[in-house]
Design a protein around this nucleic acid. Structure first.
Lengths: 242, 242
DNA sequence: CCAATGCAAGAGCAGTGCTCTCGTTTTTGT
DNA sequence: ACAAAAACGAGAGCACTGCTCTTGCATTGG
């Protein structure tokens, strides 16, 4: 009974996985632009039209790969974070950022797929959101822990940003002060600016020894979100001084 | 004489320009992926093979558009900077960053072409470098002026970054302290992280009122490169305290 | 003035995403 | 258990792409 509706269904799952695997191989090898449905089908020994039984279009296949890429990146960041979970917030912050960079350097085409220019007129479907948020959630968690523990440093917000900052905080991390949430989101975006510039060649002939450069930049981002001190001994606004 | 070898040569220039114009139109309308040589030729009333007399391949056409895009962005930033040339370094810094953002929002596909994922296996040819550097040079200039005037704030570099920082400074701005150059390059990359996230939809449902958010983030970047004070009255390390 | 070159046009090749049809196989409802 | 329904693989075909090659005309330079 468990395999009653299984023969077909299980085959379907396997073929779907095989298609994604082969597609991912081609993506990693040649990039999203050269990913061809026909080539995938050819490599799998099936005819191209058969592939449409599994993915209704090339874009749908790409979307599946995008979700997988987000998850792969998120997993890499989460496991890197787990290894330093006992350390201070600065270490944890740096570990997550460094893991994101490492993953990007190891999977350039997949990184380009998710953080580079989105394909043609493509808007990310709703179902990508959970996977896409994993690194961000990790960073939020680090700052939240630091804040709960001994508080984080903050700088006042300009007048024009106050209401938006409150709205952002309510949506993202209601337990954190708006200033911190704003700095967090900005740092999050800036992190990917650093990674993208390295990956897409903008640092060629500008930054050569990139690892220490990145580490230093990321430490400054940690500072920006209020993770001020190298390690123990945080002064700065505590959870109660709001 | 000036038009002696002109009949042909002038026509060539005009046709080349017409091709680029039409290609740019299609790029702006549909994005780089949907830019088709045949469609360009069709729109210009010529046959597709004729177009290859002017651009040896699609990639060459794209490269030409890339250079134009860099120049367009650079020009926008430069003219925005010129309008506040008399103001303090913070105002000038913000004006350049805001102009880059505005240009990106107005030319999303062109921005994606130059700062998004590079096309297939594409590496930017050497001739793009001057055009690509214009915004960066502007930012360097702002910091240089501030430094010469009353100095900028600096934070010490970690040990592992010192030699690379010196190398970078020698290459980029020998008259600026290495710490400042490092912060400058990092801020430069981070600026495009902010712009890219807004443009490519990463801020959807996260940041709604983006203009003040961006402005605040950019002010913090100004702070990071040592442009500390809202306006006059800079303490911080002067040109001589190196 | 004539040869060399520049250029537009057309045909053609290999490749793409995608649709539709046609048997065959598997699943499902009675 | 059997027939109706759904899922599936294969193939042909359409419209499109980048790019090459050949042919014939126009422009240029010696």
């Amino acid at each position: 009974m468990s395999t009653a509706r299984g023969a077909r269904a299980r085959a379907r799952i396997e073929v779907t996985a095989a298609i994604k695997d082969e597609a991912r191989r081609q993506l990693a090898a040649e990039g999203a632009a050269k990913l061809s449905l026909r080539a995938v089908a050819r490599e799998l020994g099936m005819v191209s039209s058969a592939l449409y039984r599994y993915f209704p279009s090339r874009d749908e296949l790409l979307t599946a790969l995008i979700i997988d890429a987000y998850d792969s990146l998120g997993e890499a960041a989460e496991s890197a974070h787990a290894e330093v979970a006992a350390s201070g917030p600065r270490e944890r912050w740096i570990a997550v950022c460094a893991a994101a960079r490492r993953w990007a350097l190891e999977h350039p085409h997949e990184y380009a797929l998710i953080y580079g220019s989105p394909v043609p007129g493509y808007v990310a479907p709703q179902e990508t959101v959970p996977s896409a948020s994993r690194v961000g959630l990790l960073l939020i968690g680090v700052v939240r822990d630091a804040y709960r523990d001994k508080g984080v440093a903050r700088a006042p917000l300009p007048a024009g940003l106050e209401t938006e900052a409150r709205r952002m905080a309510a949506d993202i991390a209601p337990d954190l002060p708006p200033e911190v949430v704003v700095a967090l989101v900005a740092s999050w975006a800036q992190l990917y600016g650093l990674i993208g510039f390295e990956l897409f060649g903008q640092f060629n002939r500008v930054v050569e020894d990139r690892e220490p450069f990145f580490r230093h930049a990321v430490e400054r981002l940690a500072h920006d979100v209020g993770l001020v001190y190298p390690e123990p001994g945080g002064t700065a606004g505590g959870p109660d001084s709001a």
